[in-house]
Design a binder for these strands. Structure first.
Lengths: 340, 340
DNA sequence: GACTGGCACTCGCTACAGTCGAGTGCCAGG
DNA sequence: CCTGGCACTCGACTGTAGCGAGTGCCAGTC
């Protein structure tokens, strides 16, 4: 198990070179490009140990070494340091995100920015409704038996749903319904809504009861049960960089996975506060993404997390750079939301 | 120019076989699989003519023939008949679209359905704001100097925008603003809004004037100038069928084009009433899509068109089937919107 | 005059053998 | 413990040969 400093340096060099060139790296090339201070033969011995321990492997006998998922993991955990972004990059982020006019705009700009900076596929989750609270509920009469229920959350999200009422409801009653709902629900987190909604129905005056029941059902159904999460995606074209060498030749499974919102949410939605999560290849629980790595983190105004964002790319990716970018973008988005 | 019936039959057979097998088709295979009633040699002569006229070509000397874009064009225009959908397919469409709860849901279901049925990339444009009329405008106070402006269109679209007011506006004034805007704008098409908005500002009582000016600006900016169009996309994984033979080996340009909303809108957004448009390969004005074909049509409640939808795939696609599916889906979506 | 069978020809594909070279593992010596 | 040297492996590349699908053309037939 003895991995002395030099062996770690060799592993780091292999990862860096392989990420840069995308070609298996041999002992000679390694000593030439890095100041290891030893001969190729020595490096070869170290490589043999690293291979035995499962950190690198040989594609074929007469080829150089390539990091394994385990090798990348060690690299990320112990051998790399998050690169600080250049001032130019910081400015680019600010410039790009500034001037967003609403939440949709923020999310779209963010996802494009992430894709562009990391040159990978970017995913941004809209602020989760479960982590939002109600800022306002609006009822807009469409006809005497139809209402549009609009919910505005403190995170800026706006959701609407058409509601078919069991019986015609006069305008005054709509006003009452609106007032009652807002009195009871404004300021509450959506995750704690269900009991309150029940109270709402129970306390409603008799003639409002049927309409209130319907509205409550829709509210719960849409916002709580269906867990209305939204995502934005960008940069799929970046998957084709590295000419099919990444992703073992087929984009198919990756593209399929990217179409499954559920999968993506799982990838980027489970972010812990202020942690950047890195999933490398096999560590990924989604079979289709066994050849990919995901770097994700949470974002939100201040210290709270309201959603996740991240990027997906080949296991052969620039982890330090990607991690730095993902973090930085998340922080800027958080600040932007805080101003709201 | 003399293309007699048999030559056309040969072309049709070539297109059908090539679409089915994805392999250049030779004269022998052709007479075996189709009842042409002539010998391979005769077919070869016909092929020579077809090649001279630019309808087919040979990938290499010793290979069979492959249709050119021009060949597909002739096939689509004169040699094929739109296949009626099977009852099973119709039922599948109905079942899939039924139960959509709001516009977002309709659009998402539609795009997934299209992708699944055609096994290609599907694009659906949300009902265009330019072709919608205002059903209701809502002003929701966020703070004394901030309003959320919500516009609900008759097509079901809901757009919102945060408005920063120049000065605090009391609740009563908000009510007045709301009333005035709705009185003037409800029922009008958004494309004819600008002059009305001007009137709105001019006629506003003095103390509402500044707020109304800001609101109008935002309204015009968001809904008219920025031409807020939205799209949904699905089925990109289908691009990988046919293992890189389609799209001349690289998905790159296609994926890039699919990320450009502007491009996609151009492709599917210019639909004429009740026409299905087919763009084959080169006919496409977007360079990145020179290797692809697009089948698109408009949809809307009744006879009016409010948006476009379509699919994108390799030039080697089943045109009759795809056209039939796109049309059928568009019609069902139209019916669904009409019920609204 | 249109169609057909026959035939020579083209040329991509596959298999195979041979060479080259990058890279390794191992060993003896410093 | 490191190093230079050496034998070995094996993929990548090259050149050659044979195969076969498919063609174009032509003379013959209905």
């Amino acid at each position: 198990m003895g991995l002395d400093d030099r062996k770690l340096a060799v592993l780091r060099a292999i990862v860096e070179d392989y990420v840069a060139t995308q070609e298996p790296v041999g002992s000679r090339a390694l000593v030439e490009r890095h100041q290891l201070g030893v001969s190729p033969a020595t490096v070869r011995n170290d490589m043999a140990v690293l291979e035995e321990e499962g950190y690198i492997r040989q594609p074929h006998t007469s080829a150089g070494r390539v990091p394994t998922d385990r090798g990348y993991r060690l690299f990320v955990d112990r051998l790399s340091r998050v690169k600080p972004l250049s001032p130019a990059e910081r400015r680019a982020i600010e410039r790009f995100l500034m001037g967003a006019v609403d939440l949709d705009d923020v999310v779209h700009r963010t996802v494009r920015l992430l894709a562009q900076l990391t040159r990978q596929v970017a995913v941004v989750q809209y602020p989760s409704l479960a982590r939002s609270s109600v800022r306002h509920l609006e009822l807009v009469p469409i006809s005497t038996t139809r209402l549009m229920l609009v919910m505005i959350a403190d995170t800026g999200r706006v959701e609407q749903r058409l509601v078919e009422l069991p019986a015609p409801v006069p305008a005054d009653d709509v006003t009452d319904l609106r007032r009652l709902m807002n009195e009871k629900l404004v300021g509450t987190r959506l995750s704690e809504t269900p009991p309150l909604v029940q109270v709402l129905v129970d306390e409603a005056p008799t003639q409002l009861r049927p309409a209130m029941t319907t509205l409550s059902t829709v509210l719960l159904e849409t916002l709580v049960e269906r867990h209305e999460e939204r995502l934005a995606l960008a940069g799929t074209a970046n998957l084709t960089r590295g000419g099919l060498l990444d992703f073992q030749g087929s984009l198919r499974p990756i593209l399929e996975a990217l179409e499954e919102e559920v999968v993506l949410l799982k990838l980027i939605g489970e972010a812990e506060p202020s942690t950047t999560r890195v999933l490398i290849g096999d560590e990924n629980e989604v079979d289709n993404l066994r050849a990919a790595s995901v770097v994700s983190t949470g974002y939100g105004p201040g210290a709270t997390i309201v959603g996740g964002l991240g990027v997906l790319g080949p296991t052969r990716m620039d982890y330090p750079g990607t991690i730095a970018t993902v973090r930085a973008v998340a922080r800027y988005v958080g600040e932007l939301l805080a101003q709201n």
